[in-house]
């Protein structure tokens, strides 16, 4: 574990509340959420639908506004952090623009942020290599498989210098084999770039395999039931999933999910 430097908090949430006003009355999407994410952490959010894991990520990204409590990102309000382009966001659907080639898609944030043309080209080739898509820059999105499209969308989030990467079920729509492969690549990428990653998932093995910290959440109202600091080493080959440590952590996650069972039926 990386204990050489003092951990710096990147995201800090204190008694965070978010209530949506809907036609059917108020919905408590988040209730009394307390969480600290340190620099370089890989934090997974896991829980059933409606537990607020995506909502929490969107609050960090300033795409939702909390109705109570405090939330800071890099010591600023989330909206200030958004304006300083502190994070890259990867959505569940790759969401590449169909009229842009892969290169041009990755250039989208760079164009918006006003990078020079030469710098854009340099960064595109760098991140294409990072996600293992060299040679696909001139292709259009429909010419790529779903997994490759999602990698391109990760490259797009990596292209500018945000040190936080927020990922909302990025591999949710992909099959198991592709997902394993992408998980492995994502860990390698995380090791190389030393980014802080927030990762929403439905899958227990995925959460345990990837994370340094697993946040287990439960619905109605959305809240944190357990935060697990993973004892697994940073180097993680795929077969680490058969070790007793891995199975123990997975067990604890499952227990956490069961404890917060707010399944009404």
């Amino acid at each position: 574990m990386n204990t050489a430097t003092q951990p710096q908090p990147v995201v800090e949430a204190r008694q965070l509340d978010l209530t949506f006003q809907t036609n059917d009355g108020p919905v408590h999407a988040l209730k009394d959420v307390n969480l600290t994410i340190d620099k370089g952490d890989f934090v997974s959010f896991i829980g059933p639908s409606g537990c607020g894991k995506t909502t929490f990520l969107r609050c960090v990204a300033a795409l939702e506004t909390p109705t109570g409590g405090s939330l800071t990102v890099n010591g600023m309000t989330p909206d200030e952090a958004r304006r300083k382009r502190a994070y890259g966001y990867v959505f569940q659907a790759a969401g590449l623009y169909p009229w842009r080639t892969i290169s041009k898609n990755i250039k989208l944030p760079l164009e918006i942020m006003g990078y020079s043309a030469a710098e854009q080209d340099e960064r595109v080739s760098k991140v294409l290599e990072l996600v293992d898509l060299e040679g696909f820059g001139a292709k259009f999105p429909w010419q790529l498989s779903g997994g490759m499209q999602q990698r391109a969308s990760i490259a797009r989030a990596l292209a500018f210098d945000a040190d936080i990467l927020l990922m909302d079920e990025p591999f949710g729509a992909l099959d198991e084999i592709v997902r394993d492969h992408l998980n492995e690549q994502l860990l390698a990428l995380w090791a190389r770039t030393e980014k802080t990653i927030g990762f929403v998932t439905h899958s227990i093995p995925e959460a345990v395999y990837l994370s340094t910290k697993i946040v287990v959440m439960s619905p109605r109202p959305g809240r944190i039931t357990d935060v697990i600091d993973s004892p697994l080493p940073k180097e993680r080959p795929l077969d680490i999933r058969d070790t007793p440590e891995f199975i123990e952590v997975a067990h604890r996650v499952r227990d956490g999910l069961r404890a917060g069972h707010s399944y009404d039926d």
């Binding site: 795409l63 382009r85 966001y89 969401g95 942020m113």
Partner: peptide, 26 residues
Amino acid sequence: PSLPQLDLLKTYNASGTQGFFKLRLP
């Protein structure tokens, strides 16, 4: 344009003009 597409531009802190020419118009 779908909501995630619009959200994406928001995460880049894109201006209204940029949103028009880069997303809505195409």
